[in-house]
């Protein structure tokens, strides 16, 4: 008995956390799958409807909203992460080997540590605001007419993307510049001796060496952008119309504004499936390493 206990002592160490996580993650999954088969508005009684919620979401009355949200989600996520990565890489190369690195890094740390709801408030109310925001004022010097930004159904999505890029590109910069500094110097020196241009060194030497870091950062940024909530809620609430209503926001509104728990559970189940897919991709990347 004591021997068994001694042999399995590692279980005692991680069991509390594992039970905690299991209740916290597995229970919601089971709950969501179960409730997705019911028609249920909070306050009323759940009625079993089988796969109706899924039918409504994919093909029925909700399909137009759902697929539009999918479209918005894909655009927002891909564009945001692509911008964060390219701009982040550019800045990382720019600050590489600089003596003022410490000051530069502490400046870059600021956007990523302030609460996202604060950055949403700052941008939405004091920068984008059409009547007294500073952006229209600055642009007026270049002859640009006042724009509606977050109040316009065409400009709302790009406006939100700019906030996301502002807040999280520094994260990419910090990681990529740390990655660049950890690279071995020898391959680059060899490339210089062989007469490679700085662009060739970047594309054929640095990028391949950095590939694991770039891939990991990409997956992380994709998942975090998919979760984007605070910035959208505090600037556009998913609007105007549904112009910035990504899946995350659609699920939130369905559950906590319309209190339609049946459909929200089905949407939640879809979100869990997306996370599962992300993990499988992540594992694939980690194995490649």
């Amino acid at each position: 008995m004591i021997k068994v206990l001694k042999k399995s002592s590692h279980i005692i160490f991680f069991l509390p956390a594992l039970i905690f996580l299991f209740v916290g993650i597995a229970y919601p999954i089971v709950w969501s799958i179960n409730n997705s088969f019911y028609q249920w508005i909070i306050g009323g009684n759940p009625i079993f409807v089988g796969l109706k919620n899924y039918y409504d979401i994919f093909f029925g009355i909700l399909s137009k909203d759902f697929w539009y949200s999918v479209y918005i989600t894909v655009i927002l996520t891909l564009l945001t992460v692509a911008l964060q990565l390219t701009i982040g890489m550019g800045i990382a190369l720019l600050i590489y080997d600089r003596t003022q690195n410490k000051i530069i890094r502490s400046i870059f740390l600021l956007p990523m540590v302030i609460p996202p709801v604060v950055s949403g408030t700052i941008w939405g109310n004091f920068i984008y605001n059409p009547s007294y925001g500073i952006l229209n004022y600055v642009l007026s010097f270049f002859g640009v007419a006042p724009q509606l930004w977050t109040y316009s159904s065409q400009q709302a999505l790009p406006s939100v993307i700019v906030i996301l890029v502002w807040q999280w590109t520094p994260f990419v910069v910090l990681l990529l510049s740390a990655g660049l500094e950890s690279l071995p110097k020898a391959p680059m020196e060899a490339a210089v001796i062989d007469g490679a241009s700085s662009w060739q060194i970047f594309w054929y030497v640095k990028v391949p060496l950095l590939k694991p870091v770039i891939l990991a950062v990409t997956v992380l940024r994709l998942m975090d952008t998919l979760r984007a909530f605070d910035i959208i809620i505090s600037t556009t609430l998913g609007g105007p119309g549904r112009a910035t209503e990504i899946l995350n926001i659609m699920t939130y509104l369905t559950a906590f504004v319309h209190f339609n728990m049946g459909v929200a559970s089905a949407l939640g189940t879809i979100l869990f499936t997306i996370s599962l897919a992300a993990v499988i991709i992540m594992l694939y990347i980690l194995r490649e390493r």
């Binding site: 969501s32 979760r227 699920t251 939130y252 728990m261 929200a264 939640g268 979100l271 997306i274």
Partner: peptide, 13 residues
């Protein structure tokens, strides 16, 4: 997987 889960999906239940 727990790290990748979307908070809103956990919040509903």
């Amino acid at each position: 997987f727990s790290r990748m889960v979307l908070p809103v999906a956990v919040a509903i239940p």
